[in-house]
Simulated scan of single mutants.
Amino acid sequence: MLEQFNDLISMLCKNSSIMHEVHENRLFFTVDGILFDSFWYSTDNYRFGTSERPSRVGATLRTPSSTVARYELLRLLGGYNRWSRGRQSIELAADLDSLQASWTVVPGQLSGEQVLSMRSCPDVEFTSFDEQRAYRLAHLMQYPFEDALQLYLGE
């Protein structure tokens, strides 16, 4: 399932110090060898997590949508790419008030979990335990993908 993202991952890691490796069907990314972001597919969801080593941690963000996964890879790896090349980070709004009315935010099944979905396209949905990460991703998804890509990789 992750193979569909190979071209995007290669593009975002190109000309940067992002290291990526595969362990137990998970992709791990790091620029400093201290924190590792992971990406994998399990039980009908793309999942993202962060840990201090490439290990089997739980997901802080999950989605059944490949579109959401593409944007989160762009946000994560695009940010790493900019950081590793000494470029200024992209500041995305990280609060609920910054989202357009096109998003709904409801509590998830677990404590501290939020479910965000686009009103116009209910299939574009994700669940997160990290509010700031969720709001930044939703903010980025308000851009067409090519514009968001240019935001991170453009000179």
Rank of each mutant, 00 (worst) to 15 (best):
G49S: 11
N6Q: 15
G49E: 07
A101L: 07
I90D: 04
F29D: 05
P107F: 06
G154S: 09
F29H: 06
I90K: 04
R136S: 08
L12R: 13
W40E: 00
Q150G: 01
L74Y: 05
F28C: 07
I34Y: 09
H139D: 11
V115I: 15
D95Y: 05
L99W: 03
D37G: 03
V124G: 06
G79W: 00
E91L: 10
D123H: 14
E155A: 12
S111Q: 12
D44L: 07
T63S: 15
Y41K: 04
P54S: 10
F126W: 11
R85C: 01
D37Q: 08
T60N: 11
S51M: 08
D32M: 02
D130C: 13
L137G: 05
P122K: 12
F48H: 04
R70A: 13
A93M: 02
L2A: 06
L73C: 05
T67Y: 04
L74T: 05
M1A: 14
K14C: 12
S98N: 04
E52Y: 11
W103D: 02
D147A: 14
N45I: 00
N25S: 14
N15E: 15
S16N: 10
I34K: 11
E131H: 14
R82K: 06
S16F: 09
L76P: 01
D32W: 02
G79R: 00
S66R: 09
P144S: 07
R87S: 00
S38K: 04
R82E: 01
V22H: 11
Y80C: 00
E52P: 02
L74C: 04
V106W: 00
F5W: 12
H23M: 12
A59P: 07
R85S: 00
E155I: 06
V106G: 00
C13F: 08
Y135V: 07
F28T: 06
R56K: 11
A59M: 00
N81H: 13
R82P: 00
Q114R: 14
E155C: 03
S10W: 11
F129S: 14
D44F: 06
S111H: 10
S111R: 12
V106F: 01
R119P: 01
